[in-house]
Nucleic acid binder design. Structure first.
Length: 453
DNA sequence: CTTAGGG
DNA sequence: CCCTAAG
């Protein structure tokens, strides 16, 4: 049995390689009496059944079970102990053996798959392509087998589904909110659920076969079940997951990458952190990058005079590798640092001039509709910085493109406008706060009670 | 959720 | 940019 490798299983149809099939052939050639002995050796009891087919299946299943136990990784307590093998529900082995080899052979291969979980994907594809019309018979065989399995080994059935239900129950308190309130995240959760749900229902019918297909077809990779546990802050959970499951990081990363590729093939940077970040903010569409980089230059409302080469034409897709979140505890954060582009700054200034400083959510919704990564808090912060910069502007810098400082991205005209707006809206950083709103009304700065007089 | 402010 | 207190 150990002689067989799951990869070579696909070649059976074309080139008979019986070296690994000894187990099955042996079983097949055994007489009833011998089968009885094997049965006893397997189950520790005698049997009176004389059906050769039944005996073979039963023995095969017994062997399968024992193998399962040895490879068990999860133990879930649900009144009873439920053990799960490394690769559950791998019954979907469309062995190209045809009718020559009874169900027993299939079971053996299932076991082989159990130990070669990583190759399941490949085997499925290969067998699927090579299979041809043999598939029908094998499907029948495995189906028939599944029927017997249900009665024979209940221990094996509860598998990934249990974990899902557990984690689902754990995060049940959030599920409601996701659907109702959270807009973007909710959608993602719905889709992810829709991938899982049918699998569960189908597998309840005892057809783990389909469940395997479904789960694999959806993601193309086996996702750690921990993924189902989501909290209100997905990004942190992703990191927590990675931290908790460092070995699975690569898989998770590729999975995310794949997911992104499905949604867009435009994102070109390979930074894992970046990708994770993008995943956590689904509304971030690559088209936005494109549009932004396009309308980057033309905006000449304020900066007609400025030749600005620092408009960061490097693009937004390949920008930051600044993701520094190495230290586990209060270490460096700076998860993502997006440099403010000139167009963004100008949009912000425009928005402030239109809607007024302080109404950041409005500005974000109206003027920054396409810049999803800028939150209203970001706008506020940026405006604060702009204010600081604008009032720190030396008179010499006014009117000219002060290219003195390399670290001075904001052109002077814009800063002037910022200062203008700030003064207009009485957003002066330092001055007396008592005259704030009234000053904007055109009243005297010194006399707050002017209207009163 | 939105603002404001400190860090 | 992050975090959090306050509406």
């Amino acid at each position: 049995m150990e002689g067989g490798s799951s990869t070579s299983a696909g070649y059976i149809s074309s080139k008979p390689d019986f070296s690994k099939l000894k187990g099955e052939i042996c079983l097949d050639n055994l007489s009833i009496k011998e089968l009885h002995e094997v049965f006893k050796a397997t189950f520790g009891r005698d049997t009176t059944v004389k059906d050769k087919q039944w005996l073979k299946r039963r023995i095969a299943m017994g062997l399968t079970n024992s193998c399962d136990v040895s490879t068990t990784t999860f133990v879930i307590k649900d009144n009873k102990l439920v053990k799960e093998g490394k690769e559950d529900s791998s019954n979907n082995v469309n062995l190209p053996t045809g009718k020559e080899y009874p169900a027993a052979s299939i079971e053996y291969h299932v076991d082989l798959l159990n130990s070669h979980g990583s190759q399941i994907d490949e085997l499925q594809t290969t067998s699927g392509t090579r299979l041809g019309n043999n598939g029908v018979e094998n499907n029948y065989a495995s189906e028939d087998l599944a029927a017997d399995q249900r009665a024979a080994k209940r221990v094996r059935k509860p598998t990934k589904r249990y974990i899902e239900e557990l984690s689902e129950a754990e995060s049940k308190e959030y599920s409601g909110r996701f659907i109702t309130s959270t807009r973007n995240i909710g959608i993602r959760h719905l889709t992810s659920k829709s991938h899982v749900r049918p699998a569960r229902n189908l597998s309840l019918e005892g057809r783990t076969v389909i469940m395997r297909l479904d789960s694999l077809g959806g993601s193309g990779i086996r996702v750690p079940c921990v993924c189902r546990v989501r909290r209100s802050r997905p990004r942190k959970n992703v990191m927590a997951l990675l931290k908790f499951h460092p070995s699975g990081m690569g898989m998770t990363a590729t999975f995310v990458r794949k997911d992104l590729d499905i949604r867009s093939s435009l994102i070109d940077n390979g930074s894992v952190n970046k990708l994770l970040e993008v995943k956590s903010s689904p509304e971030e569409t690559p088209q936005q990058f494109v549009t932004e980089s396009k309308k980057e230059k033309p905006s000449a409302e304020l900066g007609r005079n400025m030749g600005l080469k620092y408009v960061d034409p490097s693009g937004y897709t390949s920008d930051d590798n600044v993701a520094t979140v190495p230290t586990a505890k209060g270490g460096t954060r700076r998860k993502h640092h997006r440099a403010w582009t000139l167009s963004e700054v100008m949009k912000l200034v425009e928005g402030v001039s239109k809607y007024g400083a302080g109404r950041w959510s409005e500005i974000k919704r109206l003027a920054f509709a396409s810049y999803s990564y800028r939150t209203s808090v970001d706008l506020k912060d940026k405006w604060r910085n702009l204010l600081k910069a604008s009032f720190a502007l030396t008179p010499a810098d006014k009117g000219v493109n002060s290219r003195k400082h390399p670290s001075m991205p904001i052109p002077a005209p814009i800063l002037l406008r910022v200062r203008e707006l700030a003064e207009m809206q009485a957003q002066v950083p330092a001055p007396n706060p008592s005259a704030s709103k009234l000053a904007a009304c055109g009243g005297s700065v010194n006399e707050p009670r002017l209207g009163y007089l």
